[in-house]
């Protein structure tokens, strides 16, 4: 596999994950448990949209062929998205959203730290800026999960149920293929086995403090590197892409 092709694919993995999670978090807009949290979740969402845009622009320059950040974000079909499966899972209750945010922002935190040392200048610049944002996302969601886990009986039951449901999607986040092999050999991307180790340490700390137990891995679902998705992505795309599909090329 050519390096440029691998970089393009790697951009989509990160950007698609951010785009889809941002879209999910935006669903909370006007539905947050309190005004302050409503703003916090939409702030996180906007951070993720911004990160996605940076990488889509990079990907578009590699692809050429009149591709733009918008055409990549809005005009691909389901199997051409490579977002990590956990990002497309439904928001559920507030506990599900916050546990998902801990699992995913901890992952971004370690991935971006590694990308700060990438041989690719674009990835380095992206990671240095985005790392500050995801550190905050991790802090915000961790504090909530710790509160929910140690809160009332109800909040503890819901948080544990959220972790039990989402845990099986975490294996997918660390899957590697020939894209990773090429980029690891060029010193551009990290070995996900290493990221997995440091991620596990971080989330174990949070869930231990929250008095939640990490469940056994059962019914693991993966496949995002190949564009294989759960039933939820199609519904997200139909809503997210509606405008561009109904009015091709619409701008504002």
């Amino acid at each position: 596999m050519k390096t440029q092709e691998a970089i393009y694919q790697y951009c989509l993995r990160i950007a698609d994950s951010n785009l889809i999670l941002a879209q999910r978090l935006a669903e909370w807009c006007s539905r947050g448990p309190i005004l302050e949290e409503d703003l916090a979740m939409t702030n996180i969402s906007l951070d993720l949209f911004g990160q996605a845009e940076t990488l889509y622009e990079y990907a578009a320059t590699i692809k050429g062929d009149n591709a733009t950040a918008d055409s990549l974000a809005f005009l691909r079909v389901e199997r051409e998205y490579f977002n990590r499966l956990i990002t497309e899972q439904p928001n559920g209750d507030f506990a599900v959203t916050m546990v998902r945010e801990v699992l995913f922002s901890a992952y971004q935190n370690h991935l971006y730290q590694a990308l700060c040392k990438s041989n690719d200048e674009m990835f380095r610049g992206f990671a240095e800026k985005a790392l500050k944002e995801v550190k905050y996302h991790l802090r915000h969601s961790s504090e909530w999960v710790i509160r929910l886990g140690g809160g009332t009986e109800e909040s503890k039951v819901r948080s544990q149920a959220a972790l039990n449901e989402l845990w099986r999607f975490t294996v997918d986040m660390f899957e590697m293929d020939e894209v990773d092999e090429e980029l690891i050999s060029m010193g551009i991307a990290p070995d996900m086995k290493e990221i997995n180790k440091s991620w596990m340490k971080t989330v174990t700390e949070v869930f231990t403090e929250a008095e939640l137990h990490i469940p056994d891995l059962n019914n693991v679902i993966k496949g995002s590197n190949k564009g294989i998705h759960t039933e939820h992505l199609g519904h997200i795309l139909s809503e997210m892409q509606y405008l561009q599909r109904a009015f091709p090329g619409a701008t504002w």
Partner: peptide, 16 residues
């Protein structure tokens, strides 16, 4: 802002 404790208050203040 509304918050349960000082850390949440700082975060909410930052976001708003």
């Amino acid at each position: 802002v509304h918050a349960t404790d000082k850390n949440m208050a700082l975060q909410n203040a930052r976001d708003i």
